[in-house]
């Protein structure tokens, strides 16, 4: 079966040649259709950078990225790609334009994706993410953090993608809201047969959401394991075990 997403030997770097900072080194992983795959690690481990490079937001990368077997190149992605792959960003306070209403965000997205029947689709999208049509004409400042993230998810779903990249989608939210959003994401995945790649620093969240995950440290993938291994606390590598141990604090 062709993997939904195949990343091979990917390096990602920032900055000019003489002051280059390599954020990801030799990342290789593959995500099957319908799978939910996690990327965990501490800040600066390069986990979010991988997602941004996949969707073409970072110019400096090498290696191979293929979505459903079709390789991509450079920066920027064609319409077919953007109809297949979408992304939800970490901070819903930063990912919605402060002066655009929900209606504007969604109708612009639909127009860009070349989709008609705007009114019906917006209503559908808002209902899909549990908001209802009453939210259509609100501005971001009239929404709570969880509601904003729902709008961001609706925007990502507008083009009916098959692969959704989730960059710490709940780390800026309260725990009770996190539960709601994680439930929503689980439901959406089942309903729309989505494939997820989810970045998080929270092991419990990744264990809850993902079938398999890779642990990253300083730009490298340390280990790829399944969620059961994580739950059992039985990873192969020392670093992964240390990460699990550090997630709960014990009095020294």
């Amino acid at each position: 079966m062709t993997p939904m997403l195949q990343v091979s030997d990917m390096d990602v770097w920032f900055g000019p040649p003489h002051a280059r900072v390599t954020a990801v080194k030799g990342a290789t992983f593959s995500v099957a259709p319908g799978e939910s795959f996690g990327l965990v690690g501490e800040s600066g481990s390069g986990k979010s950078t991988i997602l941004r490079a996949v969707v073409g937001l970072i110019p400096g990368w090498s290696g191979r990225i293929a979505v459903e077997g079709k390789p991509v190149a450079g920066i920027g992605r064609d319409r077919a790609f953007l109809k297949t792959v979408q992304m939800v960003f970490q901070d819903p306070y930063a990912s919605l334009h402060p002066r655009h209403s929900v209606d504007r965000v969604l109708s612009e997205t639909l127009a860009l994706q070349g989709l008609g029947d705007v009114d019906r689709r917006i209503t559908r999208l808002l209902e899909d993410v549990g908001l209802g049509r009453g939210f259509r004409f609100r501005f971001p400042h009239q929404l709570s953090g969880g509601q904003r993230q729902r709008v961001a998810i609706a925007r990502a779903l507008a083009a009916e993608p098959r692969l959704l990249l989730l960059d710490e989608p709940t780390s800026a939210l309260d725990v009770s809201v996190q539960a709601e959003i994680l439930n929503l994401l689980k439901d959406l995945r089942a309903e729309h047969q989505l494939t997820y790649v989810m970045v998080s620093h929270d092991l419990a969240v990744v264990a809850h959401m993902c079938d398999r995950l890779s642990v990253m440290q300083a730009g490298r993938i340390v280990e790829i394991m399944d969620a059961a291994t994580l739950r059992a606390g039985a990873p192969r590598e020392d670093y992964s075990r240390a990460l699990i141990a550090a997630s709960t604090w014990r009095r020294a």
């Binding site: 009770s176 539960a179 419990a204 264990a207 809850h208």
Partner: peptide
């Protein structure tokens, strides 16, 4: 209780998280 239950836990897998 609601806050505690809404947290995903490594040692206690659930299919859906409890919502407050």
């Amino acid at each position: 209780r609601g806050l505690l239950d809404s947290l995903p836990r490594l040692d206690a897998p659930v299919d859906r998280l409890a919502v407050l």
